[in-house]
Design a protein around this nucleic acid. Structure first.
Lengths: 204, 204, 204, 204
DNA sequence: GATGAATGAGTCTTCATTCAT
DNA sequence: CATGAATGAAGACTCATTCAT
């Protein structure tokens, strides 16, 4: 077993495998992904893959846990003492930027959750719920203070997730309809979402 | 060969199979679903399943095409001659209602699109794009006429898809965070989205 | 699943598989046996094997449970009301006859028990112990009544198992040393064991 | 190459490996044992194991040959000039003592022989047969001289092997039935076997 | 001497699909 | 129409052994 990476080559190979696994899992889902695909993508033999990770589940689990933390950073950064509308639209923009920069991570989670999150449900009902509830309380404070419009904070957060991750998770559909040059449409999306939330949140 | 359903029993069995397949495909994705699961869910033997459909792909394809049409009805109903804001929020509500009533259909599409829509890409770049472009033109007309705020119509439509389908596609996450009684949270979502879009679209 | 054999072909194939499995498991032990060997011996394809049995473990388990009952018949037949020495030497002869006629069954159990009986321990501490304790009580009655010599009944039963099964379990060693023609040595063994136990049990 | 152990550390490691291998092979059989298990039990790395031995087969072969000699010492000690019954029961007791003290060695051989002795057959038909034939001749001499009962000497030796090794090879079964405290049952076995053979061998 | 890294050859099992009735 | 039976291909995982240092 190679529970914790020790040597340089181990760290490098583990990283290579996780990168390849992210590619494959995000594109095919857990069941649809094969170790052969991951091994090929990583440039390693299948048994060598299993020298570094206990199995398919272990690779997937490692991916989920190691990425979830980073994934929630934008929400954690929502500052109770900042300007309310600026904080929220800032969060929208950071989240959209993550969809642009890390679409595979987004799809990895999307695949998992769409299928009932069998390997993530504890993270959702535990740490994620805690964080969301905490930030929702902050937002509720703002709306009760009249600093933003009286919108349900939980559903507001959901709407931000939905609208921003949409550009990663449903990328192929967005591109099929917009036929954009590269990632130009992300700028349009940024502008649209900025307007949408500024208008919706404005207390007047 | 069973090219076209003829007898009453044939039609009934095809419907039963499609119902079972929707259940299984939406919950597991294409690769994660097995004919055994579908056959069991349908109460038929596996060979009998394949008497009605040419194979796993054929069942999935039939599901996608037969459902896509209905799936787009709410958007088709967007009336160029109606009240702009009412038309759009009405669309939002119909779409949300579909997420409530037909979450499996939503997840079927979500699974497919998240994984790059390998079996749907032609529908997206063809009929879907055409419809969306047409309705986007209508919305653009409204905003150019000052009847609604000047928001990008394509991204507006995306945001509506995203925010409404979120309650079906990410159901397990929504429930893990809100811990709702049954479907109570759909009413809250309806209210939230009504406010969100009324505020955002209001031209003043 | 094919939990219970229904059709004639199923019964025939299940029997064929169990016969092949007995051959392979008894000769190689559980870990040493492969489904390939069993499939080949049964004249079936490996997947077809697994159509009849859930897996390697299931085949082995079915063998053990279905054979154990028959295996204990000779001991069950020990009659408390018969002539003591005749009953015991009769048991010895029946047991030896089983080693001659069913050496593979004997080796199947031997393989399992030598390796700690991981898949049989419950049968041993349950039904087997109960049966042995019961028959040991009968034998103890005889020896307390002075009808046979005062030998420990449990160890007497063990010695009978050991001496008779030896000709099945250690067959290759017995043959390597005696170099018998066919099974001629079984007759000599029968005579030897008859003398051994008659002499040892005789109360005088 | 490590043809013959030279240094002190080499001898120590070879001994450690053989000890670990005995543990693992006796408990799992040849096919059921893995080099990983042996390496772990020996506290060495797998490649290091293979520095000392050419491979799995080599370790097993070394074990068998190095142990067989000791294993036959009790029989070699059977003294043609001693008291016949005392010599034979003495052999029984020494053999039983070996089952008590070295059950793993007994099971190592049992595993091998039950599965047809593929790696031991030459030892059996060669040196072992020679030794047994020689001692059988001694016993035959005693019985022809009327010093012991006229029992077939080869089968007598087999019965001694069977009854004594039974307590090592079928240990789990014996314990499952007797539920002894520790090794108390070995004393009962010793008494039982002493009686059994004294009675059976007594010429009157 | 010792070990981290790597792999070819299995070995069990799953699954979409076909065959035969 | 329906199904019991059968299988080729794939897929996860194991293991003895080798390589490189």
């Amino acid at each position: 077993m190679a529970a914790a990476p020790k040597t340089r080559i181990q760290m490098k190979n583990r990283a290579t495998i996780l990168e390849a696994a992210l590619e494959v899992f995000s594109a095919n889902g857990f069941r649809g992904a094969t170790l052969d695909q991951i091994a090929t993508a990583a440039g390693l033999s299948k048994p060598n893959l299993l020298y570094y990770f206990a199995g398919k589940e272990a690779i997937h689990a490692e991916l989920l846990t190691s990425l979830l933390d980073t994934w929630l950073d934008p929400l954690r950064a929502l500052n109770a003492n900042g300007d309310p509308i600026g904080e929220i639209t800032g969060y929208v923009q950071r989240k959209l930027e993550m969809s642009r920069a890390y679409p595979r991570e987004s799809r990895l989670f999307a695949n998992e959750i769409v299928q009932g999150a069998p390997r993530m449900i504890d993270e959702i009902t535990g740490p994620l719920k805690t964080l969301v509830d905490e930030k929702a309380a902050v937002i509720r404070g703002w709306s009760e203070a009249g600093q933003i419009a009286p919108l349900d904070p939980h559903h507001l957060i959901f709407s931000i997730w939905a609208t921003t991750q949409h550009y990663a998770d449903f990328d192929v559909q967005v591109r099929g309809i917009l036929r954009p040059d590269g990632e130009a449409h992300f700028d349009a999306a940024a502008g649209f979402l900025q307007s949408l939330y500024e208008r919706a949140l404005s207390p007047f």
